[in-house]
Design a protein around this nucleic acid. Structure first.
Lengths: 163, 163
DNA sequence: TTTGAAAGACGATCGGA
DNA sequence: TCCGATCGTCTTTCAAA
């Protein structure tokens, strides 16, 4: 008998359905969720608790219109840093993560070391962010920025098959 | 007198605080939210409704651990398509948006036309996604993929100052 | 694990300030 | 616009299967 359980993310069909529903609408009531899945509310609550405790559900977040946050311009910034040591990587990552303009930081393999996703007021602020703030960091050896015209993201992700 | 209201996203201090709280935890009760902000629950409810109606709050989504969804490998794929017409752009965007591997599609200005953010089971599946599915599309003239080692994203975004 | 029942907490409405 | 009272619904717990 193989021990697969513990705090492992073993997600069955019912868990998957809960995950799907809560990705689509995190604020629907536990009763409505239970009704959709054909189970008792108490069962549903226990499932959601278990998923949360196991780390499968990491949180619930409101999605806010970026223009309402005065962030009409988005861009990607691909960055190369040197030397490519853990200390430099972690320091850079922590620094940019704390900047209010930065939505996300990605540590990459390959040509570029980082990709930053930023959202700012307008092109002037993008430029000043690049020139006045980012380029001040000495570990950066190059960066390229690409303005984002449109963004479409999939809020509801399904588990992929094992294959 | 200038007309600024209507269905415009005029967000005051209280709205900002609500937005901040609901980005951090979308499932907290209306009462708890009201208590944190020092307002009556009925007031809080009305504010949240107004923000939703005005399109400032776009939805509430559970954040799910990608490894639990059997998506241990993430990557960016920068794509160039030709001809660069609206028809081609929209067709490509709609096609990739519907692929289960794709978390997000970005339409870019500059060197590349698109950036795809994908999450798949492993490197083998990334390879087969690129070779067997993506490269089948005739409008693609080139693509480069970068594996993502780490991703850190900021769930709570503040409004930026007007300046 | 799942369930139904019970108790307490919450969402939603509305009249008044 | 905000608030407090009210009603109906919901979350949460728990003992049992």
């Amino acid at each position: 008998m193989v021990e697969i359980s513990g705090i492992m993310p073993v997600v069955d069909e019912l868990d998957s359905a809960i995950i799907r529903e809560l990705q689509a609408d995190a604020r629907q009531s536990n009763r409505e969720l239970a009704r959709k899945l054909g189970i008792a509310p108490s069962t549903c609550l226990e499932r959601v608790r278990s998923l949360t405790h196991r780390g499968v559900i990491r949180g619930y977040h409101a999605e806010i219109d970026l223009t309402a946050l005065n962030r009409g311009v988005q861009a990607f910034i691909a960055v190369q840093v040197r030397p490519l040591s853990r200390a430099v990587i972690d320091a850079f990552k922590d620094a940019v993560r704390g900047m209010p303009e930065v939505l996300a930081v990605f540590v990459l393999a390959g040509g570029d070391d980082f990709q930053l996703h930023v959202a700012v007021q307008d092109l002037d602020h993008l430029h000043s962010f690049l020139v006045d703030r980012l380029s001040k960091r000495r570990e950066i050896v190059s960066f390229r920025s690409s303005v984002i015209y449109q963004r479409e993201h999939n809020n509801v992700l399904s588990p992929l098959p094992a294959d």
